[in-house]
């Protein structure tokens, strides 16, 4: 792809992304969200991050990849426990990475 075409592509993706991010803020600039939409909104964050996490851990190129002897899901499990107990993002990522390195030595 030529550089000019690439710039156009990136600008287009940037514009689409910005429109998405502004869309609902713009549409509901002067009125309240309908009640059902506001109720749904409460679950947007948990659902989005669960889907992002699950696909980052178990999906590769459109295929579900899960193996019991793969270190990453187990390291993620350790990280979840730390996250749940401490609520500390720093500790979660630190312990998760450390667990991955340890598990790679063992598994």
């Amino acid at each position: 792809m030529s550089t000019a075409r690439l710039i156009l592509l990136l600008a287009a993706v940037g514009a689409i992304t910005y429109l998405f991010r502004y869309s609902m803020i713009g549409i509901f600039a002067n009125r309240n969200l309908p009640v059902w939409l506001r109720d749904l909104c409460r679950y947007i964050a948990p659902a989005s991050f669960a889907a992002l996490t699950a696909s980052a851990l178990f999906v590769q190129g459109g295929q579900v990849v899960a193996a019991l002897d793969a270190p990453k899901p187990w390291a993620a499990l350790v990280a979840v426990m730390v996250a749940w107990r401490t609520g500390n993002v720093f500790a979660t990522i630190g312990v998760g990475m450390a667990s991955l390195y340890l598990l790679k030595l063992v598994l």
Binding site: P46, F49, A50, L52, T53, A56, L57, K72, A75, A76, A79, V80, A83, W84, G87, N88, V89, T92, I93, G96, M97, L100, Y101, K104
Partner: peptide, 16 residues
Amino acid sequence: DIDFAVPLTFLALLTL
């Protein structure tokens, strides 16, 4: 495996 830090971030946010 620095890429593993990405799902860990999402996990940490998710638990919160």
